[in-house]
Design a binder for these strands. Structure first.
Length: 864
RNA sequence: GCCCCCAUAGCCCAAUUGGCAGAGGCAGACGACUUAAAAUCGUCACAGUGAGGGUUCGAGUCCCUCUGGGGGUACCA
């Protein structure tokens, strides 16, 4: 509020000098709406292109502080490249399919469409108020039939290539949301990332994308991203894919025709195998139990299996759980020495990793050892790991061990210590492998197995195929028709999209099968081949499918004939800079990378990585923890915007620290940001020169500060040091203020130059304030379309610099020298200083380290 | 358990990549303006860089060990 002071003669002047963020926002928002300064598809635009993409939001209610941070930072980058003369594509849309809409709709008895599009409208309004520089002509919503039609197209392309398939398998089942979940949606504690319910296993026939076919490429191509993606994200993806290198070994089974193949990373320990373990819930276990063992074992196995399946994921993952298992009364034959190995079923072996069976080497694997000790099975050491190798690690270098290698095996006998010997060592008890180091033994045993035809090198991945079907309404229908003959018939492309049926008459309440199945008119269709009665697939796709290619749709969002226009893709893609939360470090980014590689293989795009550079912003916390209503520490964005203004909130986001760090809202000061903006804005009122003045005539000291900023800011922005740029802007504002109040005064051309530079710099962070300053400085809107100014190199070199004079590394004096001084001259000048002579005293100078013009260091020793 | 990151002033954070530990801000103290307050302007104080060792003429920065905090992943054979 402006408080009138009737006694002041310059009341109107005071009014004008009052920084009123609300008035400034109200003034410029409609003008920008009209000017559209951020359009990116202008015909004949010759500027080089940049594609700056923010992760699009899910429309759950209004924007929150997290959005405010992400979009402020993404906007700095987009505005920066625009200012650097690039044609910037900075689009926005909504990831608008998904469970929250459906759950909210069920709760309130609404159509999910209504809830979704109302929220989108609210977010759109907030984003515009927030001055995000999006190109509003390219908006997409994944829940629009115009969008999800192309999800279906993508599905069909993958189906044709065999990359989309259906299989029955034990899947993660969320008993609250009543739907299956991808592995990626189950948290480490075994609960659903969405509902928080404890996930259980259920055997269901579901649709999968064959992402494991791409595991090697997804892993190896990460190397291309090093340096441009946060190392943390790359590490997380590597971890998630989890490639293990080893060998497959075939074991013949007594009384069975087919051998059992096991995967192992330690084929060198094959001679130490004393039993075999199969996953109880595997088909293999079923098969082994079906014939051979006694009825008693069969019964006990059935009980065991039932127990295993009842146990929750959480229980099963507790690593300190005692080992359990059942001997199946079957035997495997070790291919290298013909030994009979008893076969057990135990739940520490997973059905869906490797082949669901392992060769157990208790001496060298902790899990096998725990099991062997629990069931009194033999333990045979085949690697002598005594004296953990230090220093030169001789066993890694060759086959010979030092002569003094001690071999008192009893001291480390796993049977006694309970500790498996996993380390380096020399092979023993292993026939042809004896004496070899671990790595050499691995190489040799694989050769032996290969020539015998009983083994081969193999790789395995932690990554599983991507389960994409969901038993819910608010998603993309899967474009498959199931014939009466049980076969799958893809919906012909010209019949896309398969529209979601209206919600009227449907019961959306989760019940374990898709609500779409209840839409009689929709689900019953003629077989596309022969017209016989058939049923639509009633499942919908995981919404991560939607977001796995949306960055391509932005390039031609209104194209009705194809998913994306290859000419536009060539122009813009891949994304130059992607900005979003680290919460998507695995899921979304892995899926988008996968789909990009698929599209590359199908010939639709010419690149294999979708996002050339990635910036992960941190989270916005309050009092040390994530904001939530239940914790009572929620800070409402709209309140912050009302109180401090859009620009102050945006500036605070940029200034709080490095963008990838979390911001604790309790530690930062939007009021301080507002104060700074007001201070910057008020500078304009003190600029009394006209826009035509010649800056060269201005005060040199202030000009130097201005040009130092002009020189430094671009590099800082490009390395995401937004907080430092803001600090530099504050310095520049302080310098300009000083020049006005106690220097050459507001009429000096350097003051205008400095203030204009402040406006240009500020336009990245505080667009309203900057635009208003720009107008008051005498320019036409929009400041977003004025380029950056180059620094004048002649103003960057100081006339003198301060050189530090050290004696034995301690600072003893400082001298002002020319920046062009050479080492000898610097040394000479320093030596002449009385302080230096005093410090050296009667000691002898041994070396002089001169780093002109900054530093000279006299290194001394006592006089001899 | 394994892998990764971080630690600088009361607080948030800088430090030209091995060269004077401090750019900026918050909070604080004092002063100017004011009848007073707010706003504004100005001045000031505060750490030797989590601990220990090493390399170096010189270490916040590089190496090793440890402590504390954060993250990822985990019967994945």
């Amino acid at each position: 509020m402006v408080i009138e002071n009737p006694s002041a003669t310059g009341a109107s002047h005071d009014d004008a000098e009052r920084y009123d963020f609300q008035a400034i926002q109200d003034k410029w928002m409609p003008i920008w709406e009209d000017l559209k300064p951020y359009q990116s598809d202008i015909e004949g635009d010759k500027r080089p292109r940049k594609y700056v993409l923010d992760m699009f939001p899910y429309p759950s209610g209004d924007l929150h502080m997290g959005h405010a941070e992400a979009y402020a930072l993404g906007d700095v980058i987009a505005r920066y490249w625009r200012q650097q003369g690039f044609n910037v594509l900075h689009p926005i849309g909504w990831d608008s399919f998904g469970l929250p809409a459906e759950n909210a709709a069920i709760k309130r008895g609404l159509d999910p469409r209504e809830w979704t599009y109302d929220n989108i409208e609210q977010q759109r309004t907030s984003m515009k108020r927030y001055a995000t520089s999006f190109d509003w002509d390219r908006v997409l919503h994944t829940s629009d039939p115009e969008y999800y039609k192309w999800n279906q197209w993508l599905f069909l392309k993958m189906y044709e290539k065999g990359l989309a398939y259906r299989k029955a398998s034990w899947v993660n089942w969320d008993p609250v949301d009543q739907t299956v979940l991808a592995n990626e949606q189950v948290l480490p504690d075994g609960t659903s990332e969405r509902s928080g319910a404890v996930v259980v296993k259920k055997k269901l026939t579901q649709w999968y994308f064959r992402i494991t076919d791409y595991a090697d490429r997804l892993l190896d191509d990460l190397r291309q991203l090093e340096g441009s993606w946060p190392a943390k994200v790359i590490a997380m993806q590597r971890n998630w894919i989890g490639r293990s290198i080893g060998a497959d070994v075939d074991f013949t089974i007594e009384g069975r025709d087919e051998p059992v193949t096991v995967f192992t990373t330690r084929p060198d320990t094959l001679y130490g195998a004393t039993f075999m373990v199969v996953a109880p819930d595997s088909d293999l276990a079923q098969d082994l139990v079906a014939s051979g063992p006694s009825d008693d074992v069969r019964r006990r196995f059935a009980t065991y299996l039932a127990d295993v399946q009842k146990s929750s994921e959480t229980e099963r993952q507790a690593t300190d759980r005692p080992k359990t298992g059942i001997f199946l009364e079957r035997y495997a034959i070790n291919p290298v020495n013909g030994e009979r190995l008893p076969i057990w079923a135990a739940d520490y072996v997973l059905a869906d990793y490797g082949h669901g069976a392992v060769m157990a080497v208790p001496a060298h694997d902790q899990r096998d050892l725990d099991f062997a000790r629990a069931f009194d099975l033999p333990i045979r050491i085949v690697v002598d790991t005594l004296q953990p190798v230090t220093g030169a690690i001789p066993v890694l270098q060759g086959d010979e061990l030092p002569d003094d290698w001690p071999s008192d095996i009893n001291e480390i006998n796993p049977a006694k210590t309970g500790l498996a010997l996993a380390g380096e060592g020399r092979l023993i008890n292993s026939g042809p492998l004896d004496g070899l180091s671990k790595s050499n033994a691995i190489r040799k045993i694989i050769e032996i197995l290969e020539s015998a035809g009983t083994g081969r090198p193999a790789k395995n991945y932690r990554l599983r195929d991507w389960l994409i079907s969901r038993q819910r309404y608010w998603g993309t229908p899967i474009p498959i028709i199931h014939g009466a003959d049980g076969a799958e018939y893809p919906v012909p492309e010209d019949q896309l999209p398969v529209l979601l049926p209206p919600t009227e008459g449907l019961n959306l309440t989760p019940k374990g099968t898709s609500p779409l199945g209840g839409a009689e008119d929709w689900v019953n269709v003629p077989n596309p081949v022969d017209g016989s009665p058939a049923l639509r697939d009633a499942d919908t796709m995981d919404t991560f499918v939607d977001s796995s290619w949306y960055f391509l749709r932005f390039l031609s969002p209104n194209d009705e004939t194809k998913a994306f226009d290859p000419r536009e893709v060539d122009k813009w893609a891949p994304v130059d800079q992607y900005v979003g939360g680290v919460t998507h470090a695995i899921l979304h980014l892995l899926y988008a990378r996968f789909i990009t590689k698929v599209l590359f293989d199908l010939g639709y795009v010419s690149f294999t990585e979708p996002f050339s550079a990635l910036l992960n912003q941190g989270m916005v916390l309050m009092d040390g923890s994530a904001m939530s209503k239940s914790k009572g520490n929620l800070v409402r964005l709209s309140d912050q915007l009302d109180e401090h203004g859009v620009d102050a909130v945006r500036l605070t986001m940029a200034f709080a620290g490095p963008p990838e760090d979390d911001i604790d809202w309790a530690d930062v000061s939007p009021a301080g940001s507002a104060k700074f903006l007001a201070r910057a804005w008020r500078l304009v009122g003190d600029v009394t020169s006209s826009p035509e003045v010649n800056w060269r005539d201005g005060d040199r000291a202030l000009r130097r500060v201005t040009h130092k900023f002009l020189a430094e800011a671009p590099g800082l922005i490009e390395s995401f040091k937004f907080n430092v740029v803001v600090a530099r802007l504050m310095e520049l504002v302080n310098a300009a203020r000083k020049a006005i109040d106690s220097g050459p005064g507001g009429g000096d051309p350097a003051v205008r130059e400095a203030v204009e530079t402040v406006a240009l710099g500020l336009s990245l962070f505080a667009p309203y304030t900057a635009e208003d300053m720009w107008a008051r400085l005498g320019y036409e809107p929009s400041i977003a379309n004025y380029g950056w100014r180059g620094a004048d190199a002649s103003l960057l070199t100081e006339e003198t610099v301060t050189a530090v004079v050290q004696v034995d590394g301690k600072v003893r004096d400082r001298i002002e020298v020319s920046p062009k001084i050479d080492g000898a001259a610097l040394e000479e000048a320093a030596r002449a200083l009385p302080s230096v002579a005093r410090s050296i005293g009667d000691r002898e100078v041994v070396t002089v380290v001169a780093r002109a013009p900054r530093l000279v260091n006299f290194v001394t020793k006592p006089a001899s």
